[in-house]
Design a protein around this nucleic acid. Structure first.
Lengths: 193, 193
DNA sequence: TCACTTTGTTAACCTCGGTTAATTACTTTC
DNA sequence: GAAAGTAATTAACCGAGGTTAACAAAGTGA
């Protein structure tokens, strides 16, 4: 969940009282690297704004495999759609890949303010629009591109993440094994030489 | 784009004048089977509600391959996010798989009414929420499930579509070739015997 | 600094799905 | 109802990626 950040709220014409309420409803939380921020299956009706650090959102299967949905870094946000919309357990876990600072806010707070301020409603609408668009792009990549093409795209578009994440996590994001990724990288190196 | 239909509007407490305007802004269109309803690359700022029939939303690649994003049947709706949100060309085409009746409405009409009626805003918010959720589920399937598992899931959850679509279109939706799907089907038949 | 753990590389082997092509079965259409 | 087009099946072959395992490299910690 990206394309939307805390600073979006600063632009809203809230009353002093409501702005205070909004600010107070944020709870700052910190997590050490490798700590699980959200556990797959747990209901989580908060939204998290990442101030610094990096997390991975990932599915864990019964046979112990991990598939990475997405990476969220500083400036981004995340939350569980299945919890927010269906009040059900999150379909994925969230794990800190770097020491993490987030601001958490209950989704209910959003709803209350959205009923009061049309501008706020536009913000939340925009958020879900951008999320749907982002998911659609990921769907396209998984459906139409080969692992090799997904790798090249990630390398170009997420250059800064390339040296912040483990190669095995990148492989899991691309939908292949670490062995396959290592193999692939060196094959394309040969072509360059 | 599903989980949202024309009947949602009937429940809205619009004024007589606005309801008339809303009803008048719908344009009924019909398409024969096999006709392209929307061409990949064209800007399309309308939303389509499917009254009867069936369409496929699909990506076409430069080398002539087709990948099916989703099927939309009567009661469902579709539109191009990239056109609605970015005023850019649609990333996919829409093709009628059966004779089709749709009601088309300009997305701008939505925006205008949403600014006027909070209830309307909730409808559009809900729409994008459900769309994001749907895309997330598809992402999960493509990332975590094998072709075989995706086939079984489709067979159970979209039973009515199984005999309305060509096997080659199902294969394209699952992300494999028609040959692979035929092979897979018969392999699992053997197991049943 | 030396042991220990984690991560990445490489090789051998295997499976699944892609490609091509021939064959059969079904639809259209005239 | 015959001809032409469209779908599905099957087989042979190939390549990408999975699996396992052994090894190397790089962190991490007492």
């Amino acid at each position: 969940m990206n394309h939307f950040s805390l600073s979006d709220f600063d632009r809203l014409p809230l009353s002093d009282r409501d702005r205070l309420q909004l600010n107070q409803s944020f709870r700052r939380r910190t997590f050490k690297k490798k700590i699980k921020v959200l556990n797959q299956g747990d209901v989580c009706t908060e939204i998290y704004f990442v101030r610094s650090g990096l997390v991975k959102l990932c599915y864990h299967t019964l046979d112990g495999k991990e598939y990475i949905k997405s990476f969220i870094k500083e400036g981004g946000m995340f939350g569980s759609l299945n919890s927010l919309l269906n009040n059900a357990g999150s379909t994925f876990s969230v794990i800190a890949l770097e020491d993490l600072i987030v601001d958490a806010v209950a989704y209910a707070t959003f709803f209350n303010l959205a009923n009061k301020y049309p501008e706020f409603h536009a913000v939340s609408l925009n958020f879900f629009q951008q999320l749907a668009l982002k998911k659609e792009i990921r769907e396209y990549e998984l459906l139409c591109l080969s692992a090799q093409q997904r790798y090249e795209k990630f390398r170009l578009q997420e250059a800064d993440l390339m040296h912040r994440i483990k190669q095995s996590d990148l492989a899991s994001y691309l939908g292949i094994t670490p062995v396959a990724l290592s193999r692939m990288k060196n094959k394309s190196n040969l072509k360059i030489k």
